[in-house]
Amino acid sequence: MRLSVAVLILCFFSWTLTAGDMPVPTREDMPGSDIVREEVFVGGALWGLINGGADLYYEYGFDRMALQEIEWQGEEFRLELYRMKSPGAAFGVFSVSVHGCEVGGPASTGDCLNRFQYQLYSGNYYLSLINYSGSDKARELSVDIGSIVASASGDIRVDLPGLFRQDMFKEIIDEIKMIRGILGLQNALPHLASLYEGLEDYTVWYIELEDTEGKTEILLTETGDYFDINASDRFELRLGKAGFTAGRKNNRILAVRSAAGREQDNEILRLIPAG
């Protein structure tokens, strides 16, 4: 959906970089619209807008955010475009922010539409576009606005770890979450937060699936240069204590916890390449 709409939009609208070189839409992109508020929040200023809610963005790596309040064709919108410090950070925020997508999905399409909100990520950008009415028309306009942003920001996707690019994950890849710190864990995976207590510099990829034998959780932890190597053993012990079966390859720790038990976990670990 996203690409086809983007091409269509480019045929009819122009776009320019405004709001501090952020790829936000202009009035020209949205004929007849009124942008009643436009602000850019740089660095710590995000705290002034959303208080502690900003911490999640800082945890992933935040650069700036452009806020617009838009009135267009009788509908009202609140656009928040976050420029993160890396495409991974943008994808991570997106992956833990989307839920119940009526159209789209985190990994397959890179966007997500539901009644009141349209979200997408592209390159270093994460877009949250809220409409206040929840009408069909508002949703259609949301996609139009989102497409302007996607096009202007290059419509760039992040590469998932090779493990999750295998065909076996194709049907469930939209369930994937990417997290880079304890706040993200507490928000998105609270039942796993205690595993990472006291640890720093890691990226967590998580996917959960349910088949005929019950629930299976797959947890890939990529450790960074500042990850305490001594803490690594402690972390793996915690995994074991929590019922995960884990294996390590270089800076990746892959853990599996399935309803069928450790024998099944080991079987799964044998089936999945860590790369």
Partner: peptide, 25 residues
């Protein structure tokens, strides 16, 4: 999530690669 999903791993087992993982001690 589709509760009735077929057995996920068995379906793909034949085409999968070796793990290359070291077990956690």
């Amino acid at each position: 999530m589709d509760k009735g999903r077929r057995n996920f791993f068995r379906l793909f087992a034949a085409g999968s690669l070796g793990a290359g993982l070291s077990p956690v001690m």
